[in-house]
């Protein structure tokens, strides 16, 4: 195994372990912080796969923005500090969920091993495939229209979030409906 493979295995173990902690811990804030560890190690995996630009975007947006948003959400819904007992569903639902997730993992992994067991990713040679220069040129040459549509979607989501969180939307003030006089 090369150094890259060893590093990838270690990062993968960290990612899967912290993901398990995200879904099993009984402290809300710890779940968000384990999510940081998981997303950070996935960013490391991107770096090892030579997708450098995606890795930094992952760090900036996921680890930076999304986790902070989630922490704000926890704070604003008055999440308790310390252990909670009511974060998980009952034992029956937990067993069914574990069965479903385990079955899903089994089926998918069997199919993947069957289909791709001999294939190798060639990481040698051209290391500039994922640099910001090539990613930027691909984004603004080949994918510029989806990029613009995505900016519209972000605008719509922004407006939607503002409308949802304002308290005075839809409440007509009584004095204002007199019409022009």
């Amino acid at each position: 195994m090369s150094v890259v493979e060893v590093l990838f295995v270690l990062l993968g173990i960290v990612a899967v372990g912290s993901a398990l902690l995200v879904v099993t811990t009984n402290q809300l804030v710890h779940a968000a912080l384990w999510l940081v560890v998981c997303l950070g190690s996935v960013a490391g995996c991107y770096l090892l796969l030579s997708a450098e630009f995606v890795a930094w975007v992952q760090v900036l947006i996921y680890v930076g923005a999304v986790v902070v948003l989630l922490l704000f959400g926890l704070m604003l819904t008055r999440a308790p500090i310390g252990a909670s007992t009511d974060l998980d569903a009952g034992l029956g639902q937990r067993a069914v969920a574990a069965l479903t997730a385990g079955g899903l993992a089994g089926i998918v992994i069997t199919a993947l091993v069957d289909a791709f067991s001999g294939e190798r990713i060639d990481l040698g040679g051209d290391v500039s495939t994922g640099s910001s220069a090539s990613a930027g040129s691909a984004l603004f040459r080949g994918w510029v229209l989806p990029f613009e549509v995505l900016s519209l979607l972000l605008l719509a989501a922004l407006v939607g979030a503002i409308v949802l969180s304002r308290r005075d939307v839809g409440v007509e003030p009584e004095a204002a409906d007199g019409g022009p006089t």
């Binding site: 090369s2 890259v4 493979e5 990838f8 295995v9 993968g12 990612a15 899967v16 993901a19 398990l20 995200v22 879904v23 809300l28 779940a31 998981c38 996935v42 995996c45 090892l48 796969l49 989630l70 959400g73 926890l74 819904t77 999440a79 009511d86 974060l87 998980d88 569903a89 639902q93 937990r94 069914v96 969920a97 574990a98 479903t100 997730a101 385990g102 899903l104 993992a105 998918v108 992994i109 993947l112 091993v113 791709f116 067991s117 294939e119 190798r120 990713i121 990481l123």
Partner: peptide, 29 residues
């Protein structure tokens, strides 16, 4: 690097996420 390595990590992460969606009661989790 074998292609299976990232694929296996991704499959495990997806299954763990599915388990979390089914089990958690808190909307933010």
């Amino acid at each position: 690097m074998p292609l299976l390595m990232p694929l296996l990590v991704a499959a495990l992460l997806f299954s763990i996420g599915a388990y979390g969606v089914l089990v958690r009661r808190n909307a933010i989790l």
